[in-house]
């Protein structure tokens, strides 16, 4: 059985290649998410100027949070890329920590979205 617990530079090239491709797609999705969220913030600012008030402010906070998550995604892709470039164990550890952080914050974002929707439905 091939085992992860092997001497350094032991990661097979096919895995590193997969990770390189994955990092590219991750970065793409991260950049698109940031662009979308920045547009969302601008939209909410214009809403605020037109008197949307608290709703627009909440929207800006949510989009800010989404930007933060997208930045973590880009960081994650950078760590994976570093790992694929030189099989660095520390980069893999950082990538996995970013992965954990990214999915945890995504779940928090979903929970906040649900809570906000319920709150707004009750306010109407």
């Amino acid at each position: 059985m091939e085992n992860l617990d092997q001497p350094s530079n032991s990661f097979p090239e096919d895995i590193l290649k997969e990770i390189r491709t994955m990092a590219g797609w991750m970065q793409f999705v991260g950049i698109i998410s940031i662009i979308g969220s920045v547009l969302g913030v601008l939209g909410n600012f214009s809403g605020m100027a037109n008197g949307a008030g608290a709703n627009a402010l909440l929207g800006i906070l949510m989009q800010g949070f989404a930007i933060y998550i997208a930045v973590i995604l880009i960081q994650k892709s950078t760590h994976f890329r570093n790992f694929s470039a030189n099989s660095d164990g520390e980069a893999l550890l950082q990538a996995m920590k970013s992965t954990h952080m990214y999915w945890m914050l995504s779940l928090v974002m979903i929970a906040i979205n649900i809570a906000m929707n319920i709150l707004m439905a009750n306010m109407r």
């Binding site: 992860l4 092997q6 350094s8 920590k97």
Partner: peptide, 15 residues
């Protein structure tokens, strides 16, 4: 003996 420590394994599990 190599690059994968128990910390790595914990991070795999958490992720």
């Amino acid at each position: 003996t190599g690059q994968i420590s128990s910390e790595h394994r914990d991070s795999f599990r958490e992720a």
